[in-house]
Amino acid sequence: MSNIQHLVRNAFGRLQLVDLQGRIHDNVTPVRAHPLSAPDEGIALVGEDGHEIAWIDHLDRQPEAVRSLLQEEFASREMMPTVERVVSVSTFSTPSEWTVETDRGPTSFILKSEEDIRRLGEGRLLIASSHGIHFLVPDRFAMDRGSKKLLERFL
């Protein structure tokens, strides 16, 4: 169910929503209810005052124009690199320096403790660096053999 009649970018590049009653809401912000476990389900469109204006049950059931705008908005705000390969780990105790290849290129970060690796289920992991950047491992079982071996030492 959705309360959206029309969703566009205004002249300032911010989202503008026209609800089913014809009211115009400027500077709308999409917020995922479950950003890690179900990122395309349960999206609130929130007004400047922080109150929910509209709710989207499933992103994939929205018209292409709405879906595209929301995906662009999330992509511009969300910084969660996906780890494609673990290249090296400085030591098997923490803190340790990790060198990884991500969907945004190679990088290094410090893992403060094993508790900074969170299991999300179905082989997914969320790794928090010492600087607060979260790295997503979408399926640790599908990674190359070397990466799996390094990850297992910390799980």
Results as ranks from 00 to 15, higher is better:
residue 1 M to S: 09
residue 4 I to L: 04
residue 6 H to E: 14
residue 7 L to Y: 04
residue 8 V to R: 11
residue 11 A to H: 13
residue 13 G to N: 02
residue 13 G to P: 05
residue 14 R to P: 00
residue 14 R to V: 07
residue 14 R to W: 03
residue 16 Q to W: 00
residue 19 D to Y: 07
residue 20 L to D: 07
residue 23 R to Y: 12
residue 23 R to H: 14
residue 24 I to V: 15
residue 25 H to Y: 04
residue 25 H to K: 00
residue 25 H to M: 01
residue 27 N to L: 03
residue 30 P to R: 04
residue 31 V to Q: 14
residue 31 V to R: 15
residue 34 H to S: 15
residue 37 S to C: 11
residue 39 P to F: 09
residue 41 E to T: 12
residue 42 G to M: 12
residue 45 L to G: 05
residue 46 V to W: 05
residue 48 E to Q: 10
residue 49 D to Y: 01
residue 50 G to E: 08
residue 50 G to F: 08
residue 51 H to V: 02
residue 52 E to P: 04
residue 54 A to M: 03
residue 55 W to K: 14
residue 57 D to C: 07
residue 57 D to Y: 08
residue 59 L to F: 08
residue 59 L to T: 10
residue 59 L to K: 08
residue 60 D to A: 10
residue 60 D to R: 14
residue 61 R to C: 11
residue 63 P to K: 06
residue 63 P to S: 03
residue 65 A to R: 09
residue 67 R to Q: 15
residue 67 R to N: 11
residue 70 L to M: 03
residue 70 L to F: 06
residue 72 E to M: 09
residue 73 E to D: 15
residue 74 F to S: 12
residue 75 A to Y: 11
residue 79 M to C: 13
residue 80 M to C: 13
residue 81 P to I: 11
residue 83 V to N: 08
residue 85 R to Y: 01
residue 95 P to F: 14
residue 97 E to K: 15
residue 100 V to N: 03
residue 102 T to P: 04
residue 102 T to I: 12
residue 103 D to S: 14
residue 105 G to S: 12
residue 106 P to M: 04
residue 106 P to I: 06
residue 109 F to K: 07
residue 111 L to W: 12
residue 112 K to T: 13
residue 113 S to G: 10
residue 116 D to H: 13
residue 116 D to P: 03
residue 118 R to K: 09
residue 119 R to P: 11
residue 120 L to Q: 15
residue 120 L to T: 13
residue 123 G to W: 07
residue 124 R to F: 13
residue 124 R to V: 15
residue 128 A to S: 12
residue 129 S to P: 05
residue 132 G to C: 10
residue 132 G to I: 11
residue 135 F to A: 09
residue 137 V to G: 09
residue 138 P to N: 12
residue 139 D to C: 08
residue 141 F to Y: 09
residue 142 A to Y: 00
residue 142 A to N: 03
residue 144 D to N: 02
residue 145 R to W: 05
residue 146 G to C: 00
residue 147 S to D: 02
residue 148 K to M: 11
residue 149 K to F: 04
residue 149 K to E: 08
residue 153 R to T: 07
residue 154 F to T: 04
residue 154 F to H: 06
residue 154 F to K: 03
